[in-house]
């Protein structure tokens, strides 16, 4: 479904601030895979998401979605294949537009926009049914401006908007990080339900190891622009937070060891 081949991305090349954000990343997602990505700040998780979504273009390497190369495709063109939820609850919705207008915008993701009305009677019914799955009562507030919703409600709406058109690939970039624990739990549960129901191929960045273990069938750990650890299926199910931390320390120290070996 998604394939990254030898992706490299360097920021500020040739200056003292040079930073290799991604080092020859290879990653393949099979249809229906739900991959969680963990890693410390600066590990390259967000850069990888941005390379996939088209916000950043890689220096070398190629991105493939559905067997098609999309490396040079602009962000908005690529959006036909990709649904996205951002970390900031304000980022995924238009605050001065109503709930139904926002849903209409999302509904057009896969289609060419025309001069037909965005919100029709038929679509409104469809939106209402979709909103019911959130169980937040938003189906009764279709004409409320989204700016009036709470962060949790907005994030739930963003999640619905990203998924209800069944994208080929769903990108979740720390989408529960800005919420309080109760809202984060709600969004996590909604994510799980929606991905399972629609069988979406999903890539989720998170700082919450417990969440990374609970969701998905594959787990990836990134560090310094590389994928340093990967677990899937049974192996992932048997993982715990402690084991993950141990693994991280082990790999980190072996890196240090090899660095030291080179210096000596």
């Amino acid at each position: 479904m998604l394939e990254l081949r030898q992706i490299t991305k360097v920021f500020n090349e040739g200056t003292v601030d040079e930073k290799v954000a991604l080092k020859s990343i290879n990653l393949t997602l099979a249809p229906g895979d739900f991959v969680t990505i963990i890693g410390s700040n600066g590990a390259g998780k967000s850069t990888m998401m941005n390379v996939i979504s088209g916000k950043l273009l890689p220096d070398t390497g190629s991105v493939w979605i559905n067997g098609q190369e999309v490396t040079q495709l602009s962000e908005h063109k690529r959006a036909r294949y990709i649904g996205r939820v951002f970390q900031d609850p304000l980022a995924g919705t238009a605050p001065n537009m109503t709930i139904e207008e926002n849903l209409a915008l999302a509904y057009n993701r896969t289609k060419r926009r025309t001069l037909k009305f965005g919100v029709t009677k038929q679509r409104r019914e469809f939106f209402r049914e979709a909103l019911k799955t959130l169980q937040l009562g938003l189906e009764n507030r279709l004409t409320a401006k989204v700016g009036l919703l709470s962060g949790g409600e907005r994030q739930a709406l963003s999640l619905l908007m990203a998924t209800f058109t069944k994208p080929d690939l769903l990108l979740l970039d720390e989408h529960t990080a800005a919420l309080d624990p109760a809202r984060a739990e709600l969004i996590t549960q909604l994510t799980k339900d929606m991905v399972e129901k629609l069988q979406l191929t999903t890539l989720m960045v998170t700082h919450n190891m417990e969440q990374a273990l609970r969701l998905g069938n594959r787990l990836i750990m990134m560090d310094q622009g590389q994928i340093i650890f990967e677990a899937s299926g049974k192996e992932k199910q048997s993982l715990t937070v402690e084991k993950l931390l141990q693994e991280f320390q082990r790999i980190r120290s072996s890196h240090f060891a090899s660095d030291r070996a080179m210096l000596v």
């Binding site: 979504s53 962000e75 908005h76 063109k77 959006a79 036909r80 990709i82 996205r84 951002f86 304000l90 980022a91 995924g92 919705t93 238009a94 605050p95 001065n96 537009m97 207008e101 209409a104 915008l105 999302a106 057009n108 993701r109 896969t110 926009r113 025309t114 001069l115 037909k116 009305f117 965005g118 919100v119 908007m161």
Partner: peptide, 28 residues
Amino acid sequence: QLLKTEIGLALRATGDNKQMISSFSANT
């Protein structure tokens, strides 16, 4: 009427949240 059409909604979203509407495949 124009601002209620699909193109019109995208036009309004361009002024309201550019990042969001380009993630929904509109050419801002």
